[in-house]
Design a protein around this nucleic acid. Structure first.
Lengths: 223, 223
DNA sequence: AGAGTAACTTGTCAACTGACAAGTAATTGG
DNA sequence: CCAATTACTTGTCAGTTGACAAGTTACTCT
């Protein structure tokens, strides 16, 4: 039958079955499938066998490449958090550099954050899966990445507050208002699609969301 | 051993073991336990046996009282949606009645909505568990309750927009900004507690969140 | 070419899961 | 007080799950 581990190459005009072995490719396919499973179904509901099947690889390969299900989850979380750290720190630097106006900086930051959330809805699906119960996975996420990001957002907000361009509120509430408002439509994309009759992840929808949220945080004065 | 199905009553000065049978109480305990399981772990990750154990009842009683796991989920969802419909329609009526000023009405509505979200974090945990994949559970939730609420919120927002008291944006984006901003801190209570070192569900925190969000939506003019 | 290693494959296990059948015990209605 | 009904209890089954052991195969290095 169709065996993904085999491919055919032309050799002297004759098709020859060649069995490929590609540890990196296998790990990568498993990571992708596991990312989708863990973020949409949660850790316990995701079975290693089903992840292997959707990745299109044979049964024992999670054990071989990652050891345990927990180690696979950590590899997935580590991968996604690396991406987040890279892109978010770029967004923060972008906001800080480009504009001298404090209002423009805050606007730039909010919009960049919304675009990031639309690009990686899996990240917030993961936070939402793990954020309601205090277990080893939440601890892992908090200490690995989330707490640092939280502190950074609070710092940025307090700075904007001092400069009089942010709405008066506690930074903690700002963090959850910004994060919730920026992510829910993308994290709950299936629901948003059914309610709004348009794909919430398409470019126009994302841009509208970013504008709406940036305007909301900056409606205090001159606009 | 300690059997919850037995209690002791004083009868003519003698303690007599009486086995109580209380179908309503049993169903209610199962609904509570299932609500917690389905909203925090998701449908697939929740096992009927574990729900029975945490409810403190014997093994076969979900089969007996509800038939199947799917029927139990529907009973849970139906129960929570009934509560939501009752309390939310009261909040909408409260906002419409009390105040003649359009700004005060919008403020009243936003604050009442935040208080509702803090009172029932399970509801949005359920929406978050089910909102990312289009399956029979999302369809059930949408057609049973969510679509009606969405239409109502959009109507309220468009009304406020016409009266010039709402920030300029599309009603669809308003729905997800309001819902996300109002719910995330309570739905992810464990994370918020770890980051903010205070219980996000306590009265002061909830009131602050409600004020912050109401001010945000009403910062356009006179405040 | 032949040894050694990395990559993959398959078999097996104990524990868990949802469902249902076949019981037993408490309550109710007559 | 008896019969019917409701509420609960227990046994069993087929399918799934995570883990690991024992293989087999492809590739590399010399």
């Amino acid at each position: 039958m169709a065996d993904a581990a085999k491919q055919f190459t032309q050799q002297a005009g004759r098709a020859v079955a060649v069995r490929r072995r590609d540890a990196h490719g296998t790990k990568s396919k498993l990571l992708q499938a596991a990312l989708r499973a863990f973020t949409t179904q949660g850790y316990e509901a995701s079975s290693t066998r089903n992840i292997e099947t959707t990745a299109g690889v044979k049964r024992g390969l999670i054990s071989y490449h990652f050891g345990t299900k927990q180690a696979l989850w950590e590899a997935v979380a580590d991968h996604i958090m690396q991406v987040a750290e890279r892109e978010l720190s770029a967004a923060v630097r972008g906001a800080a550099d480009a504009d001298t106006d404090a209002r423009a900086r805050l606007r730039h930051f909010v919009k960049a954050y919304v675009f990031f959330c639309a690009r990686h809805p899996e990240l917030h699906r993961l936070m939402i899966q793990e954020g309601n119960t205090h277990d080893w996975r939440l601890d892992w996420l908090l200490e690995r990445s989330v707490r640092g990001w939280y502190v950074e957002v609070c710092r940025l907000f307090d700075e904007a507050l001092l400069l009089g361009v942010a709405p008066a509120m506690n930074a903690h509430h700002f963090y959850y208002i910004l994060t919730g408002a920026a992510t829910l439509m993308f994290a709950n994309a299936a629901e948003a699609q059914a309610l709004g009759q348009q794909n919430p992840l398409d470019a126009r929808s994302v841009a509208e969301h970013a504008d709406a949220l940036a305007n909301l945080f900056l409606s205090g004065e001159s606009q």
